[in-house]
Design a protein around this nucleic acid. Structure first.
Lengths: 195, 195
DNA sequence: GTACTCAGTGACCATGTACTCACTAAAAGG
DNA sequence: CCTTTTAGTGAGTACATGGTCACTGAGTAC
């Protein structure tokens, strides 16, 4: 690769890194292209040389992120066959990626259909994994006879709620997921476990 | 009252009515002042004669709405001492006002602090009513020994989720709350009831 | 060494939107 | 009546923001 294309790749990566940082700070909707350019210390026009529109930039970043999410989910699915440990692994994951997921939780209803679809599709895979575990538990008569879909909706909605209201719930730089994880796990287990 | 002030009041009410309709259609954030003026068939400038800023207009409308919400809640609280009927009354209420509440569910994280605070305060009153009923149920040993706050958070988060994702979940002009009410009630009762 | 290529630049443009203000005309007042 | 007041008007302003384009200068090819 010659000097020129190498430099071009560097700039492209710089834009991606900087944009991701901006988006995590302020959300996709409220970050401006001028802001990204300024923070990356490049000209405003340079950004559009690499990404024709702001949306294309957002989609590329989210695709990258969701790809990594997908990998972690595969691990999660492979390793966890009981709810309790699956829950723990998933909440650990959410807590680590909380900066990004709280943005998604808030902004999801405002994204263009295609983008929202992608995000919901990833979520559906995780939901489905949990549902399967619960179904099997019910079949083995180890869990209560509840609707797995509804149970999972309760769980995911609650996590979504904490994430979207993050700025209200968390003090300082603490994690909302960390703050509520024990209570959420406990109540959710009460919902599905017998006795 | 003379002709002038009477006409002024009429215009003011016209703006309030029209703005409310616009906000319900497109949300507070995406409705423009020009749109409201055009739909009300008044000059753009007239709007600012009656409401100094868009935010003041929004706050006035939401205060009106929340006031009515408050009245209905008082009735709800007065009439319902058991969860099952309180739930039904509340979901009926949500279903009737779904147009407005789905906007609030989506946009809440983006409102200025004071406005969001007002909305959450009203919600807190309702949550608190439910929590009291559950606490009493637990004390009388009629309900399971769960954390009332967490149980209510599960319920409200789920309703919030359905409302904010309304455009995905509902087909045609049907109500999301109507669509999911039975399942939500059933699962919630399983969470809190014994057996 | 010379001509060509293209990443990068930043002033500029188009658009959208909240808000203003000089003006108009109808109503109020004496 | 004639003057004053004021609801209403709508062109205009200020600003934000996504996106463009003629130009520059370092790198590449010959």
């Amino acid at each position: 690769m010659n000097k020129r294309t190498e430099q071009k790749q560097n700039t492209r990566q710089l834009i991606l890194r900087t944009a991701k940082a901006c988006f995590i700070d302020k959300g996709f909707l409220e970050t401006t292209t001028a802001e990204i350019a300024s923070r990356a210390e490049i000209a405003h026009g340079t950004l559009f040389l690499h990404f024709k529109t702001k949306e294309i930039l957002i989609v590329e970043i989210l695709d990258n992120e969701l790809e990594q999410v997908n990998d972690k989910i595969q691990t999660l699915i492979a390793r966890t066959a009981d709810i309790s440990s699956a829950l723990k692994v998933y909440l650990d994951f959410l807590e680590r990626e909380e900066d990004l997921f709280s943005v998604l939780a808030r902004e999801l209803p405002f994204y263009p259909d295609a983008l929202r679809g992608k995000i919901l599709f990833r979520e559906a895979i995780i939901r489905n994994h949990f549902q399967q575990i619960i179904k099997e538990g019910i079949n083995r008569d180890e869990l209560r006879d509840i609707d797995p879909i509804q149970a999972i909706t309760f769980l995911f909605s609650t996590l979504n709620y904490y994430l979207s209201m993050r700025k209200i719930f968390r003090e300082e730089q603490e994690s909302v997921i960390g703050k509520f994880r024990d209570k959420v796990i406990k109540t959710f287990l009460q919902l599905i476990e017998k006795g």
